[in-house]
Every structure is written in structure tokens, then in C-alpha cells.
Design a binder for these strands. Structure first.
Lengths: 270, 270
DNA sequence: AATATCTGTACTATGTATCATACAAATTTT
DNA sequence: AAAATTTGTATGATACATAGTACAGATATT
């Protein structure tokens, strides 16, 4: 919906790259709705390409319904374009999130196998050489639209307690707890990554799209690693939101996340 | 350092895109150090390009010292490659962060002006038509290496209390408080974005690199918007880290961020 | 020792996206 | 009404990356 312009731009070309960049700025909010974006001539200079190329990129954006062009006047960003992400995870109120999440979304299994873990996962989980893990790659969809690409690694001994079918219906942390694991702590790293061909395909976005990356290591009460998650999210459908507040005095004055804000205050701003 | 391979790849070409994607997967940890990456033939299929093109991309990675190639054996990821980000902001322990931050980094002003705000900022800050804001674009560096691109919008009435020069030395939130603003709450949105030419130039990365995007609205005790921040971070130099813990029982069981973990436990894992 | 796999190297031909340029039409500004 | 700005349309030439292919060298596997 957001991706794949009608008149598909050449896969490896500059026009497409410009198209992706501009789209990113529009949906990302750098150009708000109604804003007049620079003229084609100026854009051509900024991106160091010819006006023809800019033009092709704009064609794509127009086909996507993101911009409106008027000869003589200029090109403007369509208002309705940025309807905001379908899902926004509030780091501090994950409670309603999870419930809502399971209800509104479904998971599709792309790959499921037991084998040696990637080095990064092995180290994070503290596995010894030769230990196998269950590696599952899933895509999560909301209303038929894919929004996240999940790769999980679980030590074989734990993973054997549930089946492949279970993963399509039940959140992994619940499966783990059902398997007798006392899920306790986790460590998350949030970053950004590009969509590689396989991921792009699964998420139905262009190769080279910017994705939000979350990597999580989960440990049980004894500190043993029980899950290694690598998630990639479409930024146009999913965002991390958090409220922060200013606390402390003097030199120790700093920001702190708000843990439990008003219960059901659904964010959903512009 | 991470960017700009010696034998510069053609700017608009496929080879460069493949190079960026592969580099992203390596530095992003998808291929851990020591891991053997697929053969050139297989990569060529995956990316749907010729082997020559894959080869060119690998040349770039090799020049960056990210991979080692051995005829007959294959191509492996260099261990030292992912030394981890220079800075990792722990959402939950921002106290030492800020101090360390100011000490180790410097800010370079790219642009400074008063004028009408972009629509997105105007709405977020709740400004009325015609109200001007101070718009400052800065780049933050650590040890001479740029790692973040900051665009701030502050209502003119507030911004007039400090000077352009102040921004190079003092964190903005401190300037605001010095101006009599009672900084109180904020709302953050974390996402991902692509590096546009101007940003890429400032951060010394390739155009089209994936960046971590943080957008923050800050309000005073009366709920008035006092600052609109749009920050872009290089994922290879900056990450958001957070510890989470599992709390609650039964249906209400969920994750929650850990607010005050052991004081100085510097993360810096693999 | 033989075989398979992988990287290293070289060459040509093809395609096609890109550029440069010019002019027309629509709109805003003076 | 005139001038300036902006999008719309068209075309031809060129450059340059890409694909395809073939073979040699290195290493691992059997």
C-alpha cells in the first residue's frame, strides 16, 4: 500500500533511491502534510541528479498518493498521507499492548528449524559450542499487512516443549513460561537497519527501506539465556513511543521514563 | 571510518546498494564475527544481480576491513569489526549519560535561524499561525566523529533568552531551564529513517544509510510545548539500550523497564 | 589423489538509466 | 499585463554499470 509505485521504478537506479528518500521524509514527518516541497530544480541540485530523475521519483510519490503537483504552483504533500502507524508500542505500558496485539494480529511462519545458532545469538545466550537452538522466522501481520519480521532463537532443550503450530497462535514468552521457564529479565537494543531482499519481500517493502530494529535477550530467574529475538519493524506501521519526565535536582537532574501513565490513554496523535 | 570504501563504488549503482545492505547486516550483528557468509554465487542469486556486482560490493567491505576472503574457503566476517557503538544511551539511566555526554562530545552548528516552523513542529508544540520559532541544526561529535544530527525548534519567546553560541557548549534542556522554563514532561517517538543527502553529508555516511530516528516533544509544567527535537543517529555509533523485567501475574503479566539498575554497570556487551 | 567448491581475474557486448537541453502550459507575483 | 516561477512534455546522445562467460588459483572434502 505504501510501497510499490504503480509505474515501478528501475530497481537499481537513482530515481528509485531518490523516491525512497523522499518518501521516507514525507511519511517520516519531515515534510508535514500541506507542506510545499522544494521545486524540481532545487531537488535536482540537492540530490545531485538531473531534473528528469527527480521527476521520475516524484511520479512514484504521486502514484502513491503522497504528493499533489500543480504546474506553476509547486508540489505539496497530501494531508491524509501520514495517517500514523497502525501500531505504536509504548515501552511503558506494554500491558494493554500485548492483549491488543494478540487480538489484532496474526503470525505467519516463514521458517522453522533446529540447528547451530548464529554466533551473535550463541554468545548472547551463553551457549556452549555444539548446542543447538530452535530458529524461527515469523512475520506478524495486522489486518493482512505485514509490519514486523521476527527471528527468534531458543535453546533446543526449552524449545522442545512446544510445537511449531503453537507459535502461530501464542506469544513466545507465554510458550516459554508454559514450558516451565521462569522468564525474568531482558535486555533490549534499539537500532535501525536496511531491508535486505528477503526481509523486504516478507514485509512487502522495497529493498533498502529503513527499518526499526529491536534485539532482545531474555533470561530466566537464574540468568540463563532463554530467548534471543531479532525484530525488524516497518517504521510506517510501528513506532516505539514513550513518555518521559524530568526528575531530580541540580547536577542529578535528568529524564526518566514514566512507568504507569493513565491507563487507557491511547496516544494516536497526528 | 565505517563509510566510504577506498575504491569508491558508483554512487547510484547496484553494487553500492548491495554493499550498503551487506555492511548493514554485518555491523548490525546479523552476521556475527567469524561467521562465514554465503558464497558469491549464492549472494548473486539472493540479491538478483550478477556475481561481478556482488564482487564489487565485497571489495568495498574488504577495503573497510569488515571481511576476509580466502579463495577456496570462502568469505568470513572479521572479528574486530563490530566493536559496538561508541555511545549507547540507556533509557533508564540517563543520569551518568548526560554528564558523560557533555564531557566527551562537542556540537557543531550547521544552521541557525528564526522563522516559521514546519507544520509537524507547529502542531506538536501547539503554536498558532504566524508564531515563529528558532530552528537550529546541529551535529554532535564524539572524538571528531559525527554520530547525531539534531534539529530543534523552540518558540521564539523562549529562544531569545539564550544565544547561538550557548548551544555549542550547553545542552538545550539546560538553556531552557536557565531561561525560566520549567521543563517537565516529554514524549518520544523512536523510529528509523534513511540518510538524505544533507544529513548523510553531515554525519559522514553514505546517502541511503539507515538511521535511528528520535522525535521528542518537550513541555513545561503548564503543558506548553517548549521544544521540538528531531534527532537522527548513526546506528553504528549510537544505540538505545534498556533493561526490562517481567512483572505481574496471570493476564496482567507483562514487561516493564527497569528504572534504576546498578549504578555504573556499563553495558558494553559483545 | 581426485573432486568439488570457492575466490581471483579478464574480457566483451549489451542495455538502459541518466543527462542535457529546449520549449510549452499553468500559476503566481509584480 | 508582463515577468518570473514552476510543472509538463519531448528527444537524442552518451556514459557507464551490469551481465555473461570462461578459466585459473586456492582450499577443502572425499
Amino acid at each position: 500500500m505504501q510501497d510499490a509505485p504503480k509505474a515501478t521504478l528501475p530497481e537499481g537506479g537513482k530515481a528509485r533511491r531518490v523516491y525512497l528518500l523522499l518518501r521516507d521524509e514525507i511519511t517520516g514527518g519531515r515534510f508535514g502534510p500541506g507542506a510545499v516541497i522544494p521545486g524540481e530544480q532545487k531537488l535536482a541540485e540537492q540530490f545531485a541528479v538531473s531534473r528528469v530523475t527527480i521527476r521520475r521519483a516524484l511520479d512514484g510519490l504521486e502514484a502513491d498518493g503522497l504528493i499533489a503537483r500543480r504546474a506553476g504552483s509547486g508540489t505539496t504533500v497530501i494531508g491524509g498521507g501520514q495517517a500514523g502507524p497502525a501500531i505504536s508500542a509504548d515501552m511503558t505500558t506494554l500491558i494493554p499492548q500485548l492483549v491488543e496485539m494478540s487480538a489484532r494480529t496474526e503470525a505467519r511462519m516463514l521458517s522453522f528449524a533446529y540447528g547451530p545458532p548464529p554466533v551473535a545469538a550463541a554468545r548472547a545466550l551463553g551457549l556452549t559450542e555444539g548446542q543447538k537452538v530452535q530458529t524461527a522466522i515469523r512475520v506478524r501481520l495486522i489486518e493482512g499487512q505485514p509490519f514486523s519480521h521476527l527471528t527468534t532463537h531458543v535453546p533446543e532443550a526449552i524449545a522442545r516443549h512446544y510445537s511449531e503450530g503453537d507459535m502461530a497462535t501464542t506469544p513466545l514468552f507465554r510458550l516459554l513460561e508454559r514450558s516451565g521457564v521462569r522468564v525474568d529479565t531482558g535486555h533490549q537494543t534499539v537500532s535501525a537497519a536496511l531491508a535486505s531482499p528477503d526481509v523486504a519481500d516478507a514485509l512487502e517493502v522495497s529493498v533498502g527501506t529503513a527499518l526499526l530494529s529491536v534485539r532482545r535477550v531474555v533470561r530466566d530467574a537464574d540468568g540463563r539465556g532463554v530467548e534471543y529475538l531479532s525484530a525488524l519493524y516497518r517504521p510506517d506501521m510501528f513506532r516505539l513511543e514513550m513518555d518521559i519526565t524530568r526528575v531530580g535536582e541540580g547536577g542529578a537532574r535528568h529524564w526518566e521514563p514514566v512507568i504507569a501513565p493513565e491507563a487507557e490513554s491511547e496516544a494516536a496523535p497526528a
